[in-house]
């Protein structure tokens, strides 16, 4: 175990047991769930039992937690897995293709948004400034803002000079790590460039990479591969598919792991192909 691992575990240990009273949490969950149930008109939650007393003292098991969940469930919340359709992809599967491709199209916009130094809280402010009504998901607001930035326009929410400087440093660090470099590479670069601190080498190297320059140290090809895979995995989840869907697809496609199914599924979605199952 490294020094910092041990230190961090000790630090987490200082507060991990300073938890709220489980009974109070339980009571509040009941209140909240009643509110949510009222909000979801037509979403008839089956049974009256919710979080059981077992949860408070320790364990809860799914069947004990909610009784008879199959009766009267809202199909928009709990949709059973669809069997492969012989007559072609279902509407859900086609919608998944659309969502995955939209997400892939938004990716450079979102990258531009975050690379400029904006974050979730700024998206809330932007939604207010643009009078966009939003729910939990602000992706569309961030994507719109990212597109404006790519078009060279100014956003109605401005960052401070310090936030901009931090964003530049973050972008350089991201470029460094996303290109497949690591701490050992930073040490070598620091030696070559005669820098005292490998952290400075990471930032300097990232800036060179962003400027299209080559570094005197080679990156590992595995990392470059993982970036491509990450896009495919992103597309898989953006299509609404879950970890359980990946396991099912791995079985259908006879792939060794659910992760392989996420990659393969994402690749197909990005190519405009529907998957053989609907998102759950």
């Amino acid at each position: 175990m490294t020094d910092h691992e041990e230190q961090l575990r000790e630090a987490f240990g200082t507060r991990e047991n300073d938890t709220p009273d489980p009974a109070a949490v339980y009571a509040r969950v009941q209140e909240l769930s009643q509110t949510y149930k009222r909000r979801r008109r037509g979403a008839q939650f089956a049974g009256g039992a919710v979080l059981g007393a077992g949860l408070i003292v320790g364990a809860f098991q799914a069947p004990a937690l909610f009784t008879n969940p199959s009766a009267g469930n809202d199909s928009t919340i709990v949709a059973p897995a669809a069997a492969p359709s012989p007559s072609g992809p279902s509407d859900k599967a086609l919608a998944a293709v659309k969502a995955a491709r939209q997400s892939a199209a938004d990716r450079p916009r979102l990258d531009a948004y975050f690379a400029a130094g904006y974050d979730y809280d700024d998206a809330v402010k932007l939604a207010q400034a643009w009078k966009i009504k939003h729910g939990e998901d602000l992706t569309a607001v961030k994507a719109k803002a990212g597109q404006e930035l790519l078009d060279g326009k100014k956003l109605p929410v401005q960052l401070s000079a310090a936030e901009k400087a931090q964003a530049k440093e973050d972008a350089a660090l991201n470029a460094f790590f996303n290109a497949g470099y690591d701490y050992d590479a930073a040490k070598k670069l620091a030696q070559i460039w005669k820098l005292d601190d490998p952290s400075d080498a990471k930032v300097a190297a990232g800036k060179k990479l962003l400027a299209g320059e080559e570094l005197p140290v080679k990156a590992t090809p595995v990392e470059q591969q993982s970036e491509q895979e990450a896009k495919q995995v992103d597309a898989f989840f953006a299509g609404g598919y879950s970890m359980d869907d990946a396991a099912e697809l791995a079985g259908i496609w006879k792939l060794p792991t659910p992760y392989d199914a996420k990659v393969a599924g994402g690749e197909k979605l990005l190519a405009g192909q529907a998957l053989p199952i609907d998102p759950q």
Binding site: Y36, R40, A43, L51, A62, L65, S70, I77, V78
Partner: peptide, 12 residues
Amino acid sequence: LARAQLKWRRIS
């Protein structure tokens, strides 16, 4: 947890 109750079947 309040939201989990609404989709417990899927979670379970």
